[in-house]
Design a binder for these strands. Structure first.
Lengths: 234, 234
DNA sequence: TGCGCCACCTTACGATGTATGGCTACCTTA
DNA sequence: TAAGGTAGCCATACATCGTAAGGTGGCGCA
């Protein structure tokens, strides 16, 4: 703060500021004025570097997916020698992309809401597709796999009904024994499942789930299924 | 319009109005003033029936998931005699729930963003879980299956990068031959896939996909995978 | 020296959610 | 029947949002 010589505003600096606000305080906190003050500038000055807010959001998406592409190709290259099963390649890429999404929890919803497909996404599709085709999967099956994979990477990072979606009121309220009993009566299977799955920590919502393990399990299921489909169709 | 005796406002009528606005013009069009004028009333009057806008959105979610629950139990009951494979039961329910989501395209994103889990969702989980357990799936695997299924139903209905997410500018613009060639060079596998999959209609985005078929395929993959997991773990 | 442009700013408009307080018509109760 | 409360609706106002329109200062180049 001592030498607060402010640097010139650029599109990149705007996006960076917006990104850090989104990461720290959530996407709704990203307003033009907020981003501007972060850059020690007035709101209207931003319009010299980006067309409008929608373009700013497009820029955010662009940045996140570029990061996802980077990470997943890096991870895939690093692991390329360890296996020649196409599933491992795709798995590595998917896990890396997911990791990026988890670092920017606002991103999946934003990406899903956009209408134009970023180049970086196209590149990721291409890489995954290439792995599948080289692994002997048909175009048809690979196409379906692509949809399923992108849906998984974007969907599993969002966690519906998680208390991180605002409303800290419910944070750690315990259900009364009465309510627990009533719940158990109305949803016996669910209760039994929770009882079976619950080890140490208690939380009546689905927050007790280990969503990373669940993601990996489902990913494995999907990849094995695609592989099997490929093997039986020829 | 002749006998425009306006009925008294109720929570139900508020939600119904909001719902039809969302269906017709999208979720952003649902503002307090807009809903109010629909009911021939001023915005502030709504607050006598609904705590605030967030509660209104909760109400919308509540309505949609209730509808999904209705449809999926109805469908499951109707088909209950045709098969005793748990997968068919779960499939029927999932497809019915998806159908409801497709009727309210704004719903999946809204549902995903909420923090409290509606009772109707809990009921759907219970029914699906029951089918799985009775089919011999372990609690652990069933739990993972539940996550995967809900992610699919919510995720596949959203279609990232679809032109229905605003921006009608791109609607049906043809790529120049130049661009097509450049694209083919940069993304050879993708181009080959599009060529292989494309039958009659042309559209360079992923809009040419039949997402219903893709959903059913992936659903089948998932169910078979869960079934296989259940069969090998005991 | 002067012209023009570019980055930034000021002001202002219409939209949004909602706090505050007033009005009217009814219902309850003595 | 008169008094008082209350439920439902409305008008006004405020903060915040995206952004259109136009002003201002300093720099580069003629």
């Amino acid at each position: 703060m001592a030498t607060a010589e402010r640097q010139p505003v650029t599109r990149d600096r705007v996006l960076e500021a917006a990104m850090s606000i989104a990461d720290a305080e959530g996407l709704p906190a990203v307003s033009m004025r907020r981003v501007a003050t972060e850059l020690q500038v007035e709101a209207m000055s931003l319009y010299h570097h980006i067309a409008n807010k929608d373009a700013l959001l497009d820029g955010l998406v662009e940045r996140v997916v570029a990061q996802a592409l980077d990470q997943s190709t890096a991870a895939a290259e690093k692991a390329s020698s360890t296996s020649d099963d196409w599933r491992d390649d795709v798995r590595t890429r998917s896990l890396a992309a997911r990791r990026v999404m988890l670092q920017h929890p606002w991103a999946p919803a934003l990406i899903t809401s956009r209408s134009t497909i970023p180049l970086a996404v196209q590149s990721m599709f291409e890489a995954v597709l290439a792995a599948m085709i080289r692994g002997g999967v048909s175009y048809r099956t690979a196409h379906r796999g692509l949809h399923a994979l992108s849906s998984m990477v974007l969907g599993f990072a969002q966690e519906p009904f998680s208390s991180s979606n605002g409303d800290p009121t419910m944070e750690g309220v315990e259900m009364s024994d009465d309510l627990v009993a009533q719940f158990a009566e109305q949803f016996p299977y669910t209760s039994a499942m929770v009882a079976a799955e619950l080890h140490a920590d208690g939380d009546p919502t689905l927050g007790w789930c280990d969503s990373q393990t669940e993601f990996e399990f489902t990913l494995g299921l999907l990849l094995d299924g695609l592989d099997r489909a490929a093997r039986t169709e020829d």
